[in-house]
Design a protein around this nucleic acid. Structure first.
Lengths: 231, 231
DNA sequence: TGTACATCAGTGAACGCGCGTTCACTGATGTAC
DNA sequence: TGTACATCAGTGAACGCGCGTTCACTGATGTAC
């Protein structure tokens, strides 16, 4: 970079540098997260890895929690994107549910620590607007499956049974959404989440040699349930 | 205690004291676990609470991990016992599944930190023979439900698909057990575990006002699935 | 029963560690006139 | 274009903390003869 820069470009160069360093901090933090879990994400360790003074961190994040929140938001977005891509590979609702479910497990197995950061241990890291939005993105993916699978017979759920903020977002995305379908989305999520969590936490692996097969069996039933009438 | 004791009683008095202190350490540790999660279980904190020197701890446990393993084993046993009691209140398989499922959720909500100790974050605390046995006890409860619900149509699972050690225990307890039923047990566990975990980790609560209702709906379907023929 | 010895819970100080966060400061980068 | 000023990333030392674990020692409890 020999050429001189105009004032405006100069300012943006500082901003670009800032963005780069922020990204490097997050990348280093992620590396530690992957290797040792949330506890291994330590400011001093990150600073050490990057060859910078510990205090510098505070030019980029207010607090350790803020960094974790940023990591969580990134992970939510990555997972949501991964699932969306998987769904797009299938046309029929049943196939979409299957693809989504398999992708959910695959991502969790590939990124267990990030999965835990998102879902385990009451993670207070999901409190920023940023990460809440990313969480909604994830939920909407599940709602999409339930919403496109079939219409419901009138079910005794009402909109009052759900969080207004999330309901608003969901109804905006899927105008035909019913309360019953939203309830079914959550149950769908639970069915996917159960076996995946057990496997990630090592409670399935020792007892069954091929967890994927078990999971596929479950997904087959899930797809059947989603596309048939019933509760 | 005015009376003098014989040598043998004296020896057992020492043993009794030892057992008491061990219990007090575990109780204090549990208190910290409940209040602040696994991270809050600190030797020094426990010693402080009990008014003893930090080093004394090592007369009772080899290491912090050993204490956590003991807590995990206790928690497994407590949960298993809670579920057994719940099952005993119902005669029919469907009712037993429902009772077991509701008790699973109730225990988790009442003891979230213990639940997390058992199931979250890959807990390497379940490595002692003691805690493995306690874990088996829990699993057998689930197997019992699946085993008494119905016989399976011939399904392509075989005993080779499962952990030999656990299989042996399970077959000893339920002589008529088939591989397909064992597979169904694990799926059953997954279905219970999913919604409960999501709720405990705060991912259901903000979005639905009455998670129990959702869970009961799910359990109704679970019971129907268990007692019907099918996958 | 009385004495000599062994056991072992408990002490208290120390070792060495890593952590999150603050703060007064330097120096390069960008801005205004 | 050149100078005076403002911004702000980065420094390095420090604060204060709690942790798991070890160790030489004391003293009460239990054992053997």
């Amino acid at each position: 970079m020999v050429s001189m820069t105009s004032p405006k470009e100069g300012a943006s160069r500082r901003a670009r540098h800032r963005a780069q360093t922020t990204a490097e901090i997050k990348a280093t933090a992620l590396k530690h997260l992957v290797e040792g879990g949330t506890d291994a994400v330590a400011l001093r360790g990150i600073a050490r890895d990057m060859g910078m003074a510990p205090g510098t961190f505070y030019s980029y994040f207010d607090t350790r929690e803020a960094l974790l929140a940023a990591l969580a938001a990134d992970a939510y977005r990555a997972l949501a994107a991964h699932l969306r891509t998987a769904r797009e590979g299938a046309r029929e609702p049943a196939g979409r549910a299957l693809a989504h479910g398999l992708a959910y497990r695959a991502w969790a197995l590939a990124h267990p620590q990030e999965f835990r950061l998102l879902f385990s241990g009451r993670s207070p890291h999901a409190q920023t607007p940023d990460s809440t939005e990313a969480e909604y993105e994830l939920c909407l993916g599940i709602v999409e499956i339930a919403a496109t699978a079939r219409a419901d017979a009138g079910s005794p759920y009402s909109w009052d049974d759900f969080d207004p903020a999330f309901t608003e977002v969901a109804r905006a995305a899927f105008p035909d959404l019913t309360p019953a379908t939203l309830a079914r989305s959550l149950r769908l999520w639970g069915r996917l989440h159960g076996l995946v969590t057990l496997e990630i936490d090592g409670l399935l692996r020792p007892q069954i040699t091929d967890p994927e097969r078990l999971y596929r069996d479950e997904l087959t039933d899930v797809a059947a349930w989603l596309t048939s009438t019933g509760t």
